[in-house]
């Protein structure tokens, strides 16, 4: 599994995303630039210029037409994927930590940072999927997180719920229609923030990662913790792989402590765990800084990771990855034949 190194960014990566077809990778970094890449060979497709601060987040709509980004310049922006044209800018009182489209692409969610005078909020806008159309400035929903600030959030199946991860390690479920808090569950260790939340393809369950060195699979309907993956390092990101029942976890010693430790110590590896048996299967080395984000190809044929070291590493899985089966899985496969 020889990775492709995408070295187009000058500073630490913050998020990487595949489009639903898996042919494009979008990456954002602290260097203010959004890049789009071809996933199969790592050529650059284009860049999106306009942000005035470090970028924290990116998402692409299900039709690969619209791109949403958010960053430290307190704006959330909407771009046309094909042309790089800036379609819309929403301004806020604090930076945007996370953006995500709803499954059908008609809604866009943003998470705002908590800052003096500004509480952390989750905002939702109605989106017109046509790039030529005028976009609204009207928020369709605004959820204020006054207990503990939200760090990550996303839409569940049918855009019924909004699931958010918080700084205090809890995960909450809001009604996506009226923004009412339904549940709040202490999923991770207290005061160790939830760092990522990614969805299974059908959005009935998600995986959260946390600084408490664990990742957990959580049922989107009940917020029940279904699986727990224990590692030995603070985690920044976790992803669920389609086709194979694995999860990929990324993290490493916090960036500020890295200078004092060797790469061996930093544990800058992508870790593969079996989703159902919760056992570690393998690791992929390569980054020389913590992994800030891991994203999986929607068809499950590869993954890419963005690191604090400024590189995106794109991996295409080998045959062995697809062939690997536990004995009981093999039995099950035989029984289904």
């Amino acid at each position: 599994m020889r990775p492709i190194l995408l070295s187009g960014h000058e500073r630490a990566l913050t998020q990487v995303k595949y489009n639903p077809d898996g042919d494009l990778i979008f990456s954002v970094s602290k260097d203010h630039v959004v890049c789009a890449w071809f996933s199969h060979n790592g050529e650059r497709f284009g860049t999106y210029h306009g942000h005035q601060g470090a970028l924290w987040t990116v998402d692409v709509d299900p039709h690969s037409k619209l791109l949403a980004t958010g960053g430290a310049d307190n704006t959330m922006r909407l771009w046309e994927v094909d042309t790089g044209k800036l379609l819309k800018t929403w301004e806020f009182g604090s930076s945007i930590k996370r953006v995500e489209f709803s499954p059908d692409g008609t809604q866009l969610l943003g998470v705002t940072e908590k800052r003096a005078g500004h509480l952390s909020t989750i905002v939702v806008y109605e989106i017109n999927p046509d790039p030529a159309a005028e976009q609204t400035s009207e928020q369709s929903l605004r959820i204020v997180c006054d207990e503990s600030k939200a760090t990550v959030a996303g839409f569940s199946y049918l855009a019924r719920y909004i699931i958010a991860g918080h700084e205090d390690g809890s995960v909450s479920q809001y009604d996506a229609k009226d923004g009412e808090l339904i549940y709040n569950v202490r999923a991770h260790d207290a005061d160790l923030q939830v760092t990522d939340l990614q969805w299974a393809p059908d959005r009935t369950y998600c995986i959260t990662s946390s600084k408490d060195k664990t990742a957990k699979i959580i049922d989107a309907g009940t917020l029940e913790v279904l699986k727990t993956y224990v590692t030995d390092t603070p985690l920044n990101s976790a992803a669920i792989t389609p086709i194979k029942d694995y999860v990929i976890l990324g993290g490493g010693q916090a960036a500020m402590d890295v200078t004092t430790t060797s790469a061996r110590q930093g544990k800058f590896e992508a870790r593969f765990y079996h989703k159902i048996f919760q056992e570690e299967i393998g690791r992929v080395r390569g980054h020389f800084g913590p992994l800030n984000y891991v994203a999986v190809h929607p068809q499950g044929t590869g993954y890419c990771s963005g690191g604090e070291d400024g590189y995106v590493r794109v991996h295409h899985f080998d045959k062995a990855y697809f062939d690997f089966l536990y004995e009981v899985e093999r039995e099950q496969a035989q029984a289904n034949l």
Partner: peptide, 10 residues
């Protein structure tokens, strides 16, 4: 839920 059953694809 059509989208979800189609593996998240519209």
């Amino acid at each position: 839920a059509e989208i979800e059953l189609n593996g998240g694809k519209i």
